[in-house]
């Protein structure tokens, strides 16, 4: 899996987003053990302290949990993962809607267009 960091955004934030995405997409499965902080830091080419604080934040958000001796794991709570999917979907939709409104589409036009496009893409 590739890590790509953009300029001018705290790396901490970008790690949280990337890890969240990996958990949501199932790249890291429910209950799976995560690589160590050092290995993740090496893989991403980032400072281990930054990786550590990003993982601590994911833990605070309930997406991962740690066991004292054996490391960090992806949550097994279906509710948390379901909520994560909803939150992400909402975020993406908001971004899309905002852009479409900017070019002058109404809510109704957007709804119709989304339906049409989905069929096209399929």
């Amino acid at each position: 899996m590739e890590w790509n960091f953009r300029n001018g955004i705290p790396i901490y934030t970008q790690i949280i987003d990337e890890m969240t995405m990996r958990i949501a997409s199932g790249a890291y499965q429910s209950g799976e053990k995560l690589p160590s902080v050092r290995d993740l830091a090496m893989d991403a080419g980032v400072n281990p302290n930054t990786m550590q604080s990003a993982l601590a934040e994911l833990e605070r958000r309930g997406l991962v949990f740690s066991e004292r001796t054996s490391g960090r794991f992806v949550t097994k709570e279906d509710g948390v993962l379901k909520q994560l999917h909803e939150d992400l979907a909402k975020k993406y939709f908001e971004e899309l809607a905002e852009k479409l409104r900017k070019i002058g589409m109404t809510g109704e036009e957007i709804a119709g267009a989304v339906k049409r496009w989905l069929e096209d893409i399929r």
């Binding site: 300029n7 001018g8 955004i9 705290p10 790396i11 400072n47």
Partner: peptide, 15 residues
């Protein structure tokens, strides 16, 4: 701190 710089300026350290 490099992260604080990115956070506050919206720029990379390089910029």
């Amino acid at each position: 701190n490099a992260e604080d710089i990115r956070e506050e300026t919206g720029e990379s350290v390089d910029q």
